[in-house]
């Protein structure tokens, strides 16, 4: 190869290099900043360079901190509960509405509306509905002559309240992904199952759900990642309370930085969360890659025969 043609081959890289570098810096600088900050005892009033370097002290303290562990537990519980409910409801609704009846299109559009609303608005909306006296729920209960429910003033009820709000907002996400998956299923395989004697439930169990599985797993992971980061709805509705009953991790991080002014500790908390999320993301990528590889392997095997 001549020098000229070698240079020609490299030309695109010369042009791309600045943009790529900028992108990497823009992506990694804030993350690097956060990781660095987590090793400091740093107050907002200080320059970062004035902060004391404390090594892993923030991490160790958090590890031993009862309240932090509880907050972590609330987060796990919240994510597990909402994602389970959203998956069950979303998939169930999709199975129910996957048919070509008149009005279905409109119904589907209505079902995905909650997803379009800003979380902060969702939080406000639900807070008013949960209002102890004028909220729709307690007013209705009262009209029926029933005891009011301490929606946001009781630990258990407030957890349920934020779960309901999140499920209300994010079930549609699972719903549209499931519906898309259902509608791309091979119709003739379902007809074959029909002739093979499968009932409606058997078709769902033996054909539809297994074939939807790749989409469902990705949907599940995306929702989990999101559920671990939820903030606004809880902040607006309960602000973590009463007590620590709804103090999810992102809220604790926010308050540690904002109210207690412990930026280093907040950064260390964020990194614990980051590790968890990276784990989930990695699982998702590995899973996707495995699905892809499998498809490629099957195609290759079919070519050979």
């Amino acid at each position: 190869m001549t020098t000229a043609s070698k240079l020609n081959r490299l030309t695109p890289y010369f042009f791309l290099a600045p943009a790529v570098l900028l992108l990497i810096v823009a992506l990694l600088y804030p993350i690097g900043y956060m990781i660095y900050a987590s090793f400091l005892d740093w107050r907002p009033s200080q320059y970062i360079s004035e902060a004391e370097f404390v090594g892993f002290r923030n991490y160790i303290n958090l590890w031993n901190d009862e309240a932090f562990r509880e907050s972590f537990g609330v987060t796990l519980k919240f994510a597990a509960v909402v994602v389970t409910l959203e998956m069950a409801l979303g998939v169930g609704l999709a199975l129910l509405l996957d048919r070509n009846l008149r009005g279905m299109a409109a119904l589907r559009t209505i079902f995905i509306l909650p997803m379009m609303i800003a979380p902060i608005v969702v939080g406000l909306m639900w807070r008013y509905m949960y209002h102890p006296t004028v909220g729709i729920f307690n007013r209705t209960l009262k009209n029926w002559g029933l005891e009011p429910i301490p929606w946001l003033s009781d630990g258990t009820w407030s957890f349920i309240a934020v779960v309901i709000a999140d499920v209300w907002q994010w079930t549609p996400f699972i719903f549209i992904l499931s519906l898309a998956a259902l509608q791309s299923l091979p119709q003739s395989a379902l007809e074959a199952a029909e002739l093979d004697g499968a009932s409606g439930w058997q078709k769902i169990w033996h054909i539809k759900l297994p074939l939807m599985m790749p989409v469902l797993i990705v949907a599940l992971l995306l929702r989990l990642i999101d559920a671990f980061k939820v903030l606004e709805v809880v902040l607006v509705m309960t602000n973590g309370g009463p007590g620590l009953s709804t103090e999810i991790l992102s809220l604790r991080i926010f308050r540690t930085a904002q109210e207690f002014q412990e930026l280093g500790v907040a950064a260390a908390m964020s990194n614990y969360l980051l590790i968890l999320l990276m784990l989930l993301t990695t699982i998702m990528f590995v899973y996707n890659k495995a699905v892809e590889n499998r498809a490629a392997r099957l195609r290759a095997a079919a070519q050979e025969t």
Binding site: P186, S188, A189, E191, A193, E194, L195, S199
Partner: peptide
């Protein structure tokens, strides 16, 4: 369909993937 005691071979085979 399932009560008609029929078996069918489809044009696109319709195997369960």
């Amino acid at each position: 369909s399932k009560e008609r005691d029929l078996a069918m071979v489809f044009q696109d085979y319709a195997l369960y993937p």
